[in-house]
Design a protein around this nucleic acid. Structure first.
Length: 356
DNA sequence: TAGGCCATCTGGTCCT
DNA sequence: AGGACCAGATGGCCTA
């Protein structure tokens, strides 16, 4: 039984505070924590007395009449005399109240952050490539969500369905290398495939159909990003480039797939990979054979994007005769697991395409 | 071991 | 006054 990251962190992190708190045990835990943190708080108090105790001394001025001694550093001629309210000593009672307030504020902040994380987790589930085991980082989740929204908007705006390469390009813009590889993995697509410079080498029939998907209409620079892999689709950080052939660039996805923009091509008769279900969900079809597939269980569920609208018939990119494939992995959140609201949203998108 | 990611604590600021 | 929000600091875990 493995502990979640959160649990591990909670158990091991230095401030033993209370991620494990429940409302019931919060009080006793509070007291324990206060004991533990006493030393730190005391020292902090010392520092505050020396530097700036405005905050602290403003807090409790009601009682503590018993210790009204004002602190004056008489001996220090160097320091200019302090202005403003005279300081009060931090008495035990005041200290206790301060600690209490601090603990309450900490608990609130913790809850707030948990709520934020819950929301982020919800976002992870509705963004392509959701995996319980291989979670996207917060920042990557936000970036991918932004790209996803942009891509869906673009579909709505243009009324055309993108080809997979363009769509993945749009999704991966600005993502780090691992996430880019992850998204590519979702599609069983070699990341090199959708690199701008490499796509130029792809024969015309496999070129992205919608130019608008190949590049955002606005600059997609992400200035100030912490490390080079962010904010660029430069191939130098995606699959550390080695000489490749066109064939390898398209492996394994396009080996058997029909030209992306032509769902009705009669040339199609091979098995589809990756499988895209009738409603557009991507999923692996087979028992994971490669290490990659064993380790990463994803699902693509951009139904509204990739699958909703075919060029003419508003059908999925792949023919409905394509084998519907599922991953029998319990850690995958299937599209069916989405909320009613999400399904309604997709139904509405579907309706839009069918009406257009 | 460095770097990335994360949870938590903390003090400041703003709002109700 | 108290709560929400924010950003900086800190330390732990994980991975390349």
């Amino acid at each position: 039984m493995t502990k979640s990251y959160t649990e591990q962190t909670m158990m091991s992190s230095e401030p033993q505070d209370s991620a494990t708190w429940t409302d019931e045990c919060q009080r006793s835990q509070n007291e324990q924590d206060m004991e533990k943190n006493n030393g730190a708080l005391e020292s902090m108090h010392g520092g505050l007395e020396d530097d700036d105790e405005d905050g602290l001394n403003r807090l409790d001025e009601d009682d503590e009449e018993e210790e009204e001694e004002e602190e004056e550093e008489e001996g220090d001629d160097q320091k200019p005399k302090r202005r403003g309210p005279k300081k009060k000593k931090m008495t035990k009672a005041r200290m206790q109240r301060f600690k209490m307030r601090r603990h309450k504020a900490n608990a609130r902040e913790r809850n707030r952050m948990h709520g934020l994380n819950d929301a982020l987790e919800s976002l992870r589930k509705v963004v392509p490539c959701y995996s319980k085991t291989q979670k996207l980082s917060k920042i990557e989740t936000l970036r991918l969500a932004k790209n996803y929204i942009w891509a869906l908007s673009e579909i709505l705006r243009s009324g055309k369905s993108p080809d997979v390469i363009s769509f993945v390009q749009a999704l991966c813009r600005g993502l780090s290398q691992p996430t880019t590889n992850l998204v590519a993995g979702c599609l069983q697509l070699n990341p090199r495939t959708f690199l701008p410079e490499q796509t130029q080498e792809i024969p015309s029939h496999m070129q992205p159909a919608s130019a608008s998907f190949a590049a955002h209409p606005y600059s997609y620079q992400t200035p100030g990003l912490p490390s080079p892999p962010y904010g660029t689709m430069d191939s130098s950080h995606v699959f550390h480039v080695k000489p490749h052939s066109y064939g390898s660039a398209l492996e394994p996805f396009f080996e058997t797939a029909l030209p992306l923009t032509d769902c009705t091509s009669p040339s199609f008769d091979g098995p589809l990979s990756p499988p895209l279900s009738v409603n557009g969900n991507f999923s692996f079809k087979h028992e994971p054979s490669s290490e990659f597939e064993k380790n990463y269980a994803f699902t693509m569920h951009y139904q509204a994007a990739a699958g909703l609208a075919g060029p003419q018939g508003h059908g999925p990119i792949y023919p409905s005769s394509a084998p519907r494939c599922e991953i029998p992995m319990e850690n995958i959140m299937s599209y069916e697991g989405h909320t009613h609201h999400e399904r309604v949203m997709n139904a509405q998108l579907n309706a839009i395409f069918h009406e257009s």
